[in-house]
Design a binder for these strands. Sequence first.
DNA 1: CTGAAAGCGCTTACAG
DNA 2: CTGAAAGCGCTTACAG
Lengths: 344, 344
Amino acid sequence: MEKVITIEDVAKKAGVGRGTVDRVLHNRGRISAETREKVLRCIEELNYKPNKAARMLARKGNYRIAVTFHNEEKEFWDQIQEGVDKAAEEYKVLGVTVDDYILPQIDIEAQLNIIRHVIDSKYDGLAIVPYDSKRITEALKEAMEKGIEVVTFNNQDRNLNCCYIGHDGFQSGRTAGKMMSLIAKNNCRYVIVSAHSSIMNQIDERSEGFLEVINQNRKDMQFLGVLNFPEDCEEVYTKIRGIFSKKNQEIDAVYVTTAIAGTVAKAIEDENLNQKVIFIGHDLTETNIAYMKKGVIDILIGQEPERQAYAAIDKICKKLLTDEEIGENEYTKISIVVTENIDE
Amino acid sequence: MEKVITIEDVAKKAGVGRGTVDRVLHNRGRISAETREKVLRCIEELNYKPNKAARMLARKGNYRIAVTFHNEEKEFWDQIQEGVDKAAEEYKVLGVTVDDYILPQIDIEAQLNIIRHVIDSKYDGLAIVPYDSKRITEALKEAMEKGIEVVTFNNQDRNLNCCYIGHDGFQSGRTAGKMMSLIAKNNCRYVIVSAHSSIMNQIDERSEGFLEVINQNRKDMQFLGVLNFPEDCEEVYTKIRGIFSKKNQEIDAVYVTTAIAGTVAKAIEDENLNQKVIFIGHDLTETNIAYMKKGVIDILIGQEPERQAYAAIDKICKKLLTDEEIGENEYTKISIVVTENIDE
DNA sequence: CTGAAAGCGCTTACAG
DNA sequence: CTGAAAGCGCTTACAG
């Protein structure tokens, strides 16, 4: 076995105690400049790499982190929840407690209260799906200033200087656009179903990206417009069905940017337009996958939801437990999924 | 902080020493049936979960594992190498040494020698890309019988009862087929470029899967046949260029199952057929990506090579270090990639 | 068959 | 400012 360098080796070589090496490693406590220098040099020369398992063991204990999101589109957020649970389970044995704060729907006021609570209760970390609001941005800034480790996921707050983990909405719209431009027949007439002025900016970015690629690659395609449906309900279903019915001669393809793909799919199926309308949507929810298997939805764009939540919590825990920097934004993979490559 | 149950708690509750609990946990040493029962019950009741970090720390040391593959298609195997290196780095601090045995090309005889060497040198584990040969199967069986932890990756030996990590060749061919069937124009005439009687069975499986989906979805498409090119060289380039040139009226689409996509792409580009031939290939190598960006290749099917190698080594180390079962085969994700969703 | 003790590498009060 | 010691949870010889 190759000899592995430990903190002990460094301490011995530098002629100091292990505690001292630890201190320079983490800039903890005060150390004389020369001791610091010497230790640093030894670390360098020995190419010392701290053992994370040991670190976590020793540091064990007593951290509390909060995670918050809403779960209105249940199937999707359940996947987020899985990521949360997995991380919570994993770090529990290392002494960190993860508390979930889950809202029934997007609610800026409620989210503000949660952030406030997180600050007041002196949580050590916060993983959050931030809604687009100046007040939220401000509240999160305050939390960060008070030393709470904050990581955002799934929706990016571009006004906040904070690590984000999730997909790039614009790029995923572009990917959908590319697929559409590859598949669509000549002079294909298409609509986008979206939700304007959403409090989740990812949604708008998807439309932009989609249109950009179509306009670039397929000048022949005809854009019939955006249908905005911020909510998902009976009424929406009826409206959509009406639109496709009346104009079924006109619509050859549809791109749904939001979580109402299931409703649109149902409308299309009920109008017997399965094979006639090209359908691209987002997220690998059970409903969406079922419609894909039935041939209503052709392609789904995935964004690795479990990974988003898992990574957000993981980063916070690593920072807390091992001082590892939280680091850069991490964009999750944008997957293109057809029935043949569904995962499992 | 929620109280975390440790081995100590279990021991106390069962009225035994920690060592004893450890023994029943790992079926190490002999324990009286009743003690065993009692301890098991306490573990159950307390819902005790061992702390892996602690386990790895204590078990640290002195494991050697070997990994072997070839790297003729360098760009691809470099990605495999990355996975190997990442795992090696990670486990080094835990006292496991990873030795690479890399062949310049597929070579059954050479691989046999490596397996032999692994057995003779009493390695603790072996991660291998097994070539299709009865003798290899036998040699691996012997290694396993001698207690070496073996995991295969990238190419599956279906005659060996051993964990495999990699993509499902058949399913990835099906995925390629689906994309082709979505994109291809009416009466599209297509060829498959492959390498029959390969020593890597994944290749043949891809063709099968591809054809199955096309035949099912697109009766209109016309199959012009399989072009077999086991090697990648100047001569192959010339031949391919000839085929596309002479028959450029005839070939509308091509599916390349092997690592010679770059050569095919070059031929097509040199014949100025970029926009005329639909091109689907495998693996996100630099060359392939470059041809995709130039518009020669339309779609690439990925198979997570880094993950394959990483997971293979990771499983072996976990087994060695924490007794965690190596478990089931793990099929890596089949990704569909266009320029818009290339990772990074 | 089983318990007590030492050790894995790191961190954290506690003295000085 | 810095060292010695105890402890994190688990495993491993060593006695018995």
